[in-house]
Design a protein around this nucleic acid. Structure first.
Length: 575
RNA sequence: CGGGGCGUGGCGCAGCCUGGUAGCGCACCUGCUUUGGGAGCAGGGUGCCGGAGGUUCAAAUCCUCUCGCCCCGACCA
């Protein structure tokens, strides 16, 4: 490709809308342009990068035995009503009516469509297992799109859906894709980690997220410094160690009321009474489906709603309003406690070991001291209900854990029979018995993967693309395009590389050297070949890696071979 | 959805408080000089000041409404 007849509109200044590095650089390097909030145009060079990622994905998915197809982005409401998600999915699902007044939506994901297809086409164990995938534009009406292509409303996603005859098969399918994903992200040149995760609105019972490690990531992840345990913060299990931080050996003392005027928060109460927050118990009232529940956690801990939702097997879960809290506890927000409460009480495991703790008194400006389990109140259900903290140990091996941030680029789920049951995706097994298909689903954010790669690979001058996903592999930069020798040398190397199938960009623009160098660094093509009259007179051209600073003089004759070798070397390093 | 901020030439911004008929840098066009890290000089074009309504002799500026975008938050008591 010749730059002068291509289209890479670079920007010297950063558009004011961009907040994070990848967003800024993608705009500046002319990879994307915004159309409207959370919706982007993939510009020619950006699209090339996207296509590279897609092709790596295709390659690995095909290798893992998955079959590509392409499903519609417009979907009928009926399918979503059948799965129950027309109600459950919420406002992220963009709904509309067609001219016949039929309810429709833009597909944020395709479980319903694929399950519908499979139930109509697949009837026998002989046709299974199958795994269908597509690379397609999704639309999710995010509450707050941000960070450019990182959290857009419209985005490119690879989604795959596996159908197995039994749990064992599903397990195998899951592992195969897990391996494929590891290969994909490794081949994209990313530093990533697979972590255990919550299943969210997709549903199901087991899942892993593939996280690109980055400080600007939206997700918090936890990993063990010793074993290979790693999890999303939402999912990270807390080891059930009783009696920690607590004087559990103490004998229960007499319950005591204590005035706490206007002291509503844990911090205020603990300061006012001069006790550490871990001697307090926090009581939070929740609206759960069609009932109310109180949740207890230690004062210095925080309720993990994902865990709570799972423990209570709840569909709907939200903190109760101030009015509800008042009617349940008889006190304004800030003074709720378990003693005398008439609602279901769920408590975090850590509560078990606590003796003589402090809790709200269910009366304005009142707390209770020396509250004790069983004697003063009963808990309906115990469980792991809080977020893990840095002082907790690894749930697997007990070693120290570390917190970090990541960008979720892939997510794989074991769905079980959730959709096949509701939508009757049935088949006949060897015995002629009708069974529900066991499903899995697997997503990769394609556009986000490119952004994540930039987030992880850049410097002050611009992007440093890993070669497998760079828009071009080699940039040829002739300095004096009007000097015949230079222009001819550039053209000849350009043609030589093209013939060998190298993706090469020839910057044939008649611009000052500095300008072209700046653009080159901004765009981040991994290998740059500079051709200047000075060195060319000695039969030399220069080769430079975007990652390094040293310019290597190479012989003009044989330059094509030298460059190809270097490209191969870069691929070997990346994979 | 709640709070905050911003919409002025292609991009980044000033002007608005205190109304008087729009400006700077970059980009763009022409010429000359320059030419290995976003050149210099000279000349030039570029705006329904997001939209609608109102106040006024006069509105980018004041008021009302509206649309769009960005940021923060969305209840841990």
């Amino acid at each position: 490709m010749k730059y002068s007849s291509y289209f890479i509109p670079t920007l010297k200044e950063t558009p004011s809308e961009a907040e994070i590095v990848s967003h800024k650089l993608m705009l500046r390097a002319g990879l994307i342009r915004k159309l409207t909030s959370g919706v982007y145009i993939y510009m020619p060079a950006g699209l090339r990068s996207i296509r590279k990622v897609e092709n790596i994905i295709r390659d690995e998915m095909n290798r893992a035995g998955a079959i590509e197809l392409l499903m519609p982005s417009v979907q009928p409401a009926e399918l979503w009503q059948e799965s129950g998600r027309w109600e459950f999915y919420g406002r992220e699902l963009l709904r509309f009516k067609d001219r016949h007044d039929r309810d429709s939506c833009l597909g944020p994901t395709h479980e319903e469509v694929i399950t519908d297809l499979v139930r109509r086409e697949i009837h026998s164990y002989r046709q299974m297992p199958v795994n269908f995938y597509q690379i397609q534009t999704k639309f999710r009406d995010e509450i707050r799109p941000r960070f450019g292509v990182m959290r857009g409303r419209e985005f490119i996603m690879k989604d795959a859906y596996s159908f197995d005859t039994d749990e064992k098969g599903a397990e195998k399918s899951y592992k195969r894709i897990y391996e494929a994903y590891s290969n994909i992200f490794r081949r994209c040149g990313l530093k990533f980690r697979a972590v255990e995760a919550d299943t969210g609105s997709i549903g199901g019972n087991f899942s892993h997220e593939f996280m690109v490690l980055s400080d600007t990531g939206e997700d918090q992840i936890v990993n063990c410094i010793n074993c290979d345990y790693a999890a999303n913060l939402e999912k990270a299990e807390v080891r059930c160690i009783q009696n920690n931080h607590n004087n559990a050996k103490d004998d229960p003392a007499a319950l005591e009321e204590v005035e706490t005027p206007d002291k509503k928060t844990i911090q205020e109460v603990s300061e006012f009474l001069s006790v550490s927050p871990e001697r307090l118990v926090k009581t939070i009232i929740y609206n759960v489906d069609d009932y109310l529940a109180a949740v207890l956690v230690r004062g210095d801990h925080e309720v993990n709603e994902a865990k709570l939702r799972n423990l209570l097997k709840a569909d709907q879960l939200e903190m109760a309003s101030q009015e509800t809290v008042r009617s349940v506890t008889g006190a304004p927000v800030g003074f709720a406690g378990p003693v005398g409460l008439k609602v279901k009480i769920a408590a975090d495991n850590n509560i078990k070991g606590m003796v003589n703790f402090i809790a709200g008194g269910n009366k304005k400006d009142l707390h209770l001291k020396n509250v004790n389990l069983e004697r003063d109140f009963k808990v309906d259900v115990f469980g792991d209900l809080r977020f893990i903290t840095p002082s907790d140990a690894c749930p697997r091996c007990g070693s120290e854990i570390r917190f970090g941030r990541g960008i979720e680029v892939g997510h794989i789920f074991k769905l079980g029979t959730k959709y096949s049951k509701k939508m009757k995706a049935l088949f006949l097994d060897e015995q002629g018995i009708e069974k529900e298909a066991v499903m899995g689903c697997y997503g990769i954010g394609v556009s986000r993967t490119v952004a994540a790669a930039i987030e992880q690979n850049h410097d002050n001058d611009g992007i440093i693309f890993p070669i497998p996903i760079a828009p071009f592999e080699v940039l040829i930069l002739p300095l004096q395009v009007n000097e015949k020798d230079v222009a001819e040398a550039a053209e000849s190397i350009y043609k030589g590389l093209m013939e060998k199938g190298i993706d090469v960009l020839l910057d044939d623009r008649d611009l000052r050297a500095g300008f072209k160098f700046k653009d080159a660094d901004l765009l981040g093509i991994p290998l740059r070949v500079t051709i200047g009259s000075r060195e060319l007179k000695n039969g030399k051209v220069e080769m430079k890696l975007r990652t390094g600073s040293e310019n290597t003089l190479i012989s003009y004759h044989g330059a094509v071979e030298t460059i190809i070798d270097k490209v191969k070397e870069l691929y070997d390093k990346a994979e």
